[in-house]
């Protein structure tokens, strides 16, 4: 059956992150937080970070969206906690490459998030995977922003 092709997208580990999300919730002491939505589908994600001494000490996400968006956010929090801001931004850049089907040097650093590479075969779903990572980039680049970043831009 043609649904077997779905396995490329919905790997078991992705479904697991969707069902048992890591770091979903709210931080008591966030240093920066951001909300980003995708106006084409209505998905919304909130990212909270605790950044101290240039290191992402903790992270949480909340929001509503599809399996891909939610599992990607869960995987992202796992990948970035304990990393420096620069490392986290590099991971976001790498992830953006991976979901477009491009190779990156340090695949291991992305951890479970590498499992989303299959999304490159589903162009309509790439933005589902990148929503939380775009929110992360905005949060790290604009640390004074404590509210909403508005909507995902068309070319992101």
């Amino acid at each position: 059956m043609a649904l077997t092709k779905l396995d490329q997208l919905y790997r078991a580990v992705i479904l697991d992150h969707s069902k048992n999300p890591r770091h979903r919730g709210v931080l008591d002491q966030a240093t920066t937080q951001i909300e980003l939505n995708n106006p084409t589908c209505g998905d919304v994600i909130q990212i909270q970070l605790l950044v101290e001494d240039g290191i992402v000490k903790d992270a949480r996400f909340e929001g509503s969206g599809c399996t891909i968006a939610m599992s990607s956010a869960s995987m992202m929090t796992e990948a970035i906690i304990g990393k420096t801001e620069a490392e986290a931004l590099k991971l976001a850049a790498d992830f953006s490459q991976v979901v477009q089907g491009k190779a990156v040097e340090n695949e291991e650093a992305l951890g479970d998030a590498m499992m989303l590479s299959g999304v490159s075969k589903f162009p309509a779903r790439i933005k589902c995977a990148t929503l939380s990572w775009k929110a992360l980039e905005i949060a790290l680049q604009d640390k004074d922003n404590q509210g909403t970043a508005g909507q995902l831009k068309h070319d992101e």
Binding site: A2, L3, K5, L6, L9, C66, F122, A124, R125, C128
Partner: peptide
């Protein structure tokens, strides 16, 4: 969206 992707595969 997950449903629509699955349907698309069919």
């Amino acid at each position: 969206h997950d449903v629509a992707t699955a349907f698309d595969m069919e």
